[in-house]
Protein backbone atom coordinates (compact mmCIF):
# COMPACT_ATOMS: atom_id res chain seq x y z
CA UNK A 1 0.00 0.00 0.00
CA UNK A 2 1.14 3.56 -0.53
CA UNK A 3 2.88 5.05 2.46
CA UNK A 4 1.27 8.46 2.27
CA UNK A 5 -1.99 7.53 3.98
CA UNK A 6 -0.34 6.70 7.30
CA UNK A 7 -2.00 3.30 7.17
CA UNK A 8 0.97 1.81 9.00
CA UNK A 9 -0.16 3.62 12.15
CA UNK A 10 -3.30 1.47 12.24
CA UNK A 11 -1.19 -1.64 11.82
CA UNK A 12 1.00 -0.60 14.73
CA UNK A 13 -2.01 0.08 16.96
CA UNK A 14 -3.53 -3.31 16.20
CA UNK A 15 -0.21 -5.02 16.81
CA UNK A 16 0.12 -3.32 20.18
CA UNK A 17 -3.37 -4.40 21.21
CA UNK A 18 -2.74 -7.97 20.15
CA UNK A 19 0.63 -8.09 21.88
CA UNK A 20 -1.04 -6.78 25.01
CA UNK A 21 -3.63 -9.53 24.86
CA UNK A 22 -0.90 -12.11 24.36
CA UNK A 23 1.03 -10.80 27.36
CA UNK A 24 -2.12 -10.96 29.45
CA UNK A 25 -2.61 -14.60 28.42
CA UNK A 26 0.96 -15.34 29.46
CA UNK A 27 0.40 -13.75 32.85
CA UNK A 28 -2.68 -15.89 33.41
CA UNK A 29 -0.71 -18.94 32.34
CA UNK A 30 2.08 -18.11 34.81
CA UNK A 31 -0.37 -17.53 37.64
CA UNK A 32 -2.06 -20.85 36.96
CA UNK A 33 1.29 -22.62 37.01
CA UNK A 34 2.08 -21.06 40.36
CA UNK A 35 -1.25 -22.11 41.87
CA UNK A 36 -0.84 -25.61 40.46
CA UNK A 37 2.56 -25.83 42.12
CA UNK A 38 1.18 -24.61 45.42
CA UNK A 39 -1.64 -27.13 45.30
CA UNK A 40 0.87 -29.88 44.65
CA UNK A 41 3.04 -28.79 47.58
CA UNK A 42 -0.02 -28.52 49.78
CA UNK A 43 -1.02 -32.04 48.92
CA UNK A 44 2.52 -33.26 49.42
CA UNK A 45 2.71 -31.77 52.92
CA UNK A 46 -0.67 -33.26 53.75
CA UNK A 47 0.54 -36.69 52.74
CA UNK A 48 3.70 -36.28 54.81
CA UNK A 49 1.65 -35.56 57.89
CA UNK A 50 -0.05 -38.89 57.70
Amino acid sequence: MEGSDKFFVVVIVMSIIFTGLGTYLFLIDRKLSRIEKKLKEFRGSKNNDK
Binding site: F7, V10, V11, M14, S15, F18, T19, G22, L25, D29
Partner: peptide, 18 residues
Amino acid sequence: WKVLGLLLVLYSIIAGLL
Protein backbone atom coordinates in the same frame (compact mmCIF):
# COMPACT_ATOMS: atom_id res chain seq x y z
CA TRP B 1 4.09 -23.25 20.81
CA LYS B 2 2.20 -20.53 22.63
CA VAL B 3 4.80 -17.96 21.59
CA LEU B 4 4.71 -19.36 18.08
CA GLY B 5 0.93 -18.98 17.96
CA LEU B 6 1.09 -15.39 19.11
CA LEU B 7 3.89 -14.54 16.68
CA LEU B 8 2.08 -16.13 13.75
CA VAL B 9 -1.10 -14.19 14.44
CA LEU B 10 0.88 -10.98 14.98
CA TYR B 11 2.60 -11.62 11.66
CA SER B 12 -0.77 -12.16 9.99
CA ILE B 13 -2.12 -8.89 11.41
CA ILE B 14 0.85 -6.90 10.13
CA ALA B 15 1.40 -8.68 6.84
CA GLY B 16 -2.30 -9.16 6.18
CA LEU B 17 -2.89 -5.45 6.26
CA LEU B 18 0.25 -4.42 4.40
